[in-house]
Amino acid sequence: MRHTLAVLVENTPGVLARVAGLFSRRGFNIDSLAVGRTENPDLSRMTIVVEGDDRILEQVTKQLYKLIDVIKISDITADEYVDRELVLIKVSSDPAHRGEIIQVADIFRARIVDLGRKTITLECTGNDGKINAFEESLRPYGIKELVRTGKIAVLRGLKYTNLESGTDLSSNKTENV
């Protein structure tokens, strides 16, 4: 099962290397990892999508908590949340197909951000299901280049994943059998 973790970390040099190194060293699979500053410039938020069963998730969480720079981990998978990902796709577009591509873009509410003689570059945001569908729709025209940001997410309504509240996977929580 895929889990979405909201991880609050200290904004220190090397924190990304620590987290990424941990995943590779322990053999955990990252589906995507997006990182950026938060409303507090001393803190960064990582949104990590990780594939694995409950046992793997438990180890991922506990190992992440061992990193001194990791302050709080929230598994928001089961909560109501809004997630977005941004993709930039460069497709080949001969004049015969340009109209079709623009139609596809309209359907997905994507924007044209660059137009070349033989290519067209589109920007699209959405959850990963939409992004995947968008990518598939453009594939027949010939995708030249594709970049995805990885998913970012935030809980709906009054729930937070910042220091004050949220579904904290506290380091003390080790629920088994």
Binding site: R55, Y65, T174, N176
Partner: peptide
Amino acid sequence: IDPAEISKNVRVNIPIP
């Protein structure tokens, strides 16, 4: 003392970090 050691190698019934 290290919660990550609990159920890392062997499944544990009663964890006490």
